[in-house]
Design a binder for these strands. Structure first.
Length: 468
RNA sequence: GGCGCGAUAGCCAAGUGGUAAGGCACGGGUCUGCAACACCCUUAUCACCGGUUCAAAUCCGGUUCGCGCCUCCA
């Protein structure tokens, strides 16, 4: 399995620290509102990475935090006249609902920044002791110059950064030794939540949170650290600086970053008015469609969001689901006999698509190619499997489609809903009428059911229905 | 100013040296009492110019266009 490592800028063979086990940290959202569809991309992408690794037999320890103390949360709390905690708890719950609807599995651990303050104070203390941090009137800064590998992830040159960015130099933070030094601990302002520390009553800087939670739940050296590409600098760069200076070990061995989700080829932003929450999208689409859409492109390529593309994704996903559903209907009339010789060949051909699927995923999680393999399997099934086949063949092919989709977190088998008895009776009556060539009555029943929101489909495999 | 990415059919999107996967839409067909659904078939020489090579979408140089990061941000 090859993964693209942002730090080395190349695809590398993935080898975990401990054979058979993977430790993985994904930076999670700051919970000050419903998550937006941009937040959803890393969630879906790295959940898929996790699922694929498990498919390959790895035991994955997957940690993803919620940042539950932050300026934006405090601002929102003040706006509503409630506590910051109330805001963060509310949106963590909402976020979990969205994740479930996108079929993003809960992490092994979802740490909260506010529950890890002790660890942060400890790490900051160690950094001060080792000379990597300094306290100025209650604010603790990281001494960037002291860490000679600073910039190794984002491939930035410190001198360029200092020279090229005026704003860093004129922010009025004269107390910093160097404009690139960043905050580890800051004193509270009036009305803000705070914790007591050796330096001041205050709260941690954003970057230290992830360093501490990663260390606590995964260890000082981990396999994979992932997140959106915008986090490369400064967030992940700073995490490396803090962790490696504190622990004296390599922080993470593989750095994975997803590209942005754009809208109308522009970055999503509130000022442009092209901002969508996952919740809004869920009102219009099954979030499985969103997941399918996100996986239809490579995770390192920018992806453009639009209603047209969602429609296309919905139709494409429907094609897979129809195939699975058709196979299921075929099962009803199929024989229980053993696989015939010809069927063994058919099954073998069908299984070959899993190899293609795995090869695609092995190549830095090429989900677009993996989905193509699923479609090839679907086409193969549609063309080669009929109700004349045995149950063993039909169910084996159907299960294979479901399995490959499940690795991507896509639910191919839609649960069958039970209809009310009277509706079932009407359907039966219509079938009888059709048989008796009483089409007037048959159409009447069809119209009646349509009014109740049920569309009937007379397929080769029998009568199907779906809700409007 | 510094660093980096991209340009493949109407749309989306794989493909990093040997003559272009897959999906959506369009068109054609099969099935069906009809309709709808479903299914099958069909659709490109890869932004432009020059170079390397027996061979390039794929490597090198240049041009044009688009985008990202350098500041909170997934």
């Amino acid at each position: 399995m090859k993964v693209y490592n942002t730090q080395t800028k190349r695809k590398e063979e993935f080898e975990p620290l401990v054979p058979g086990k993977v430790s993985m940290y994904v930076c999670g959202p700051t919970v000050y509102n419903f998550i937006h569809i941009g937040n959803a991309r890393p969630m879906i992408v790295f959940d898929t990475v996790r699922r694929y690794m498990e498919h390959k037999g790895y035991e994955v320890n997957y940690v993803s935090n919620f940042t539950d103390v932050d300026d934006k949360i405090i601002a929102k709390a003040n706006e509503e006249g409630v506590t910051a905690q109330e805001i963060s708890e509310r949106y963590i719950e909402e976020c979990k609902k969205d994740m479930a609807a996108m079929n993003v599995r809960p992490a092994t651990t979802h740490p909260l920044a506010t529950q890890e303050i002790d660890g942060m104070i400890e790490m900051i203390s160690t950094l001060i002791e080792k000379g990597y941090a300094y306290n100025v009137d209650g604010t603790v800064y990281f001494r960037t110059r002291k860490f000679k590998d600073y910039g190794k992830l984002s491939h930035k040159n410190l001198d360029d950064l200092r020279a090229g960015n005026r704003s860093l130099l004129v922010t009025g933070e004269d107390q910093k030794e160097d404009p690139l030094d960043f905050v580890l601990w800051k004193p509270k302002k009036e009305g803000e939540p705070f914790w007591t520390s050796p330096w001041s009553d205050g709260r941690p800087g954003w970057h230290i949170e992830c360093s501490v939670m990663s260390k606590k739940y995964l260890g000082e050296e981990i396999d994979i650290h992932a997140g959106g590409e915008d986090l490369i600098f400064p967030h992940h760069e700073n995490e490396i600086a803090q962790s490696e200076c504190c622990n004296g070990k390599i922080f993470a061995r593989y750095w994975l970053h997803n590209a942005f989700l754009n809208i109308d080829n522009r970055k999503m932003s509130k000022s442009l008015g092209n901002f969508f929450t996952v919740r809004e999208i869920s009102e219009k689409y099954d979030l499985q469609v969103l997941r399918f859409f996100m996986l239809s492109a490579h995770y390192r390529s920018p992806l453009n969001f639009s209603a047209e593309l969602m429609e296309a994704s919905r139709n494409a996903l429907e094609r897979i689901r129809n195939s699975v559903s058709n196979l299921k209907y075929m099962l009803d009339g199929a024989s229980d006999a053993e696989l015939t010789a010809a069927e063994k060949k058919t099954l073998e051909d069908a299984m070959a698509f899993e190899t293609k699927f795995d090869e695609a995923m092995d190549d830095d999680f090429n989900t677009a190619d993996a989905i193509a393999a699923v479609f090839e399997l679907v086409k193969y099934a549609n063309s080669n499997v009929t109700s004349d086949n045995t149950k063993s063949l039909i169910s084996a092919v159907r299960d294979e489609i479901i399995k490959l989709c499940d690795i991507l977190g896509i639910i191919a088998e839609v649960k069958e809903e039970l209809l009310d008895e009277d509706i079932e009776k009407l359907i039966e009556e219509r079938q009888a009428a059709r048989k008796a060539k009483n089409f007037a009555r048959a159409d009447e029943i069809r119209a009646e059911l349509l009014e109740k929101g049920i569309t009937l489909l007379d397929t080769r495999e029998g009568v199907k229905w779906k809700r409007a």
